[in-house]
């Protein structure tokens, strides 16, 4: 049985330049048709959807294309007055994931005071468990994603002291594997998305020295496939969103030069939709707003001259974090 590498072919016809205006249009029009099937069916992650759009447009310096006022109003309606957490959409339940998205949007719009910030802090603190881990919401799912969300939210609102940080660090480190990577919980397999969450978590809490960077960054650079794209685990297909998770982690660990930037750029650009704008997960697939942000974010990390500099830990424009005086740790090699 011959081993076949899971990868894609990029034909010569695929785009090689950034379709800047197309993407602006794609994001700006997203949600204009409230009855659009895709839009309607992704209601359960609306808050994150808005964060992806807002951040992508801000990186392109086109933030005015979205209606700030209605977005802020929407966020206010999604905050739960009792728990303090934020839901994905009106009528839905508050959750750590959407609380982070809401806080990120408000930081970009420089209007955190529009929601009950103390309530947000209370909500996050209420979800920490005795072992240091975090629930995603009151129903008890534990995942290192939520550890990242917790410290990211609290750092953005300058309230990191409401949780037990050393315990939180201990839990994240208990999810570290023999390959240097991290999974969603102790003993879970390494996965680039969760590695990003844990590396980001450690960079926010100033604990990067706990990483075995050489081991982990080697595993991450092995995610690059002959097409130039990056996958999230061994033997999986490449995907634009992993360009972000892997690249951001390598950037934080000072090892961006362990993969080929040129080849990765070719892969990311090939995932643009020439008709509608937007990026898809892989060459030839349908675009969506999630992959559009992570495609642009990765290009920004690679130094694309038409995009603002993105912060690898928060996936927000660097100037926003500078304004908030938030420093995230980065290793240099």
């Amino acid at each position: 049985m011959a081993f076949i590498v899971n990868d894609v072919d990029i034909s010569a016809a695929e785009p090689k330049e950034l379709l800047f205006d197309k993407h602006v249009e794609y994001i700006a029009n997203h949600g204009n048709d409230q009855n659009d099937f895709e839009y309607c069916m992704t209601e359960f992650l609306r808050m994150s959807g808005i964060y992806w759009g807002v951040t992508a447009l801000d990186l392109m310096q086109q933030l005015e294309k979205l209606d700030r006022k209605s977005i802020v109003e929407f966020i206010k309606k999604c905050q739960c007055p009792t728990s303090g957490g934020v839901a994905a959409c009106e009528g839905h339940d508050p959750h750590m994931l959407y609380t982070l998205s809401a806080v990120q949007i408000l930081c970009i719009y420089d209007c955190l005071d529009q929601i009950d910030v103390a309530g947000v802090a209370r909500y996050v603190a209420s979800l920490q468990q005795p072992d240091g881990s975090f629930f995603g919401d009151k129903w008890g799912e534990v995942d290192t994603r939520f550890s990242f969300c917790a410290v990211a939210i609290l750092t953005l609102i300058n309230k990191l002291d409401v949780i037990n940080v050393p315990k939180a660090v201990e839990f994240v480190m208990s999810c570290c594997n023999a390959d240097g990577g991290f999974g969603s919980k102790p003993n879970a397999e390494s996965h680039a998305g969760l590695i990003y969450c844990c590396v980001g978590f450690l960079s926010i809490t100033n604990q990067l020295h706990r990483l075995d960077c050489e081991k982990l960054a080697w595993w991450l650079c092995e995610r690059q496939l002959p097409s130039g794209g990056l996958n999230g685990r061994p033997e999986k297909l490449p995907d634009v969103c992993y360009s972000w998770w892997v690249l951001a982690s390598l950037t934080i660990m000072g090892r961006l030069h362990w993969i080929s930037s040129d080849k990765l750029k070719v892969f990311i650009l090939s995932c643009q939709d020439t008709d509608t704008g937007g990026f898809s997960d892989r060459t030839g697939n349908l675009p969506d707003i999630f992959h559009t942000l992570f495609g642009l974010g990765a290009l920004s990390l690679l130094g694309h001259d038409k995009l603002l500099k993105v912060n690898p830990t928060f996936c927000m424009p660097q100037y926003v974090l500078d304004k908030l005086k938030i420093n995230t740790q980065i290793i240099s090699v």
């Binding site: 690059q224 993969i259 090699v333």
Partner: peptide, 10 residues
């Protein structure tokens, strides 16, 4: 394995 040239050099 030139994609990872930087890794081997380090």
């Amino acid at each position: 394995d030139y994609l990872r040239q930087g890794y081997y050099a380090d």
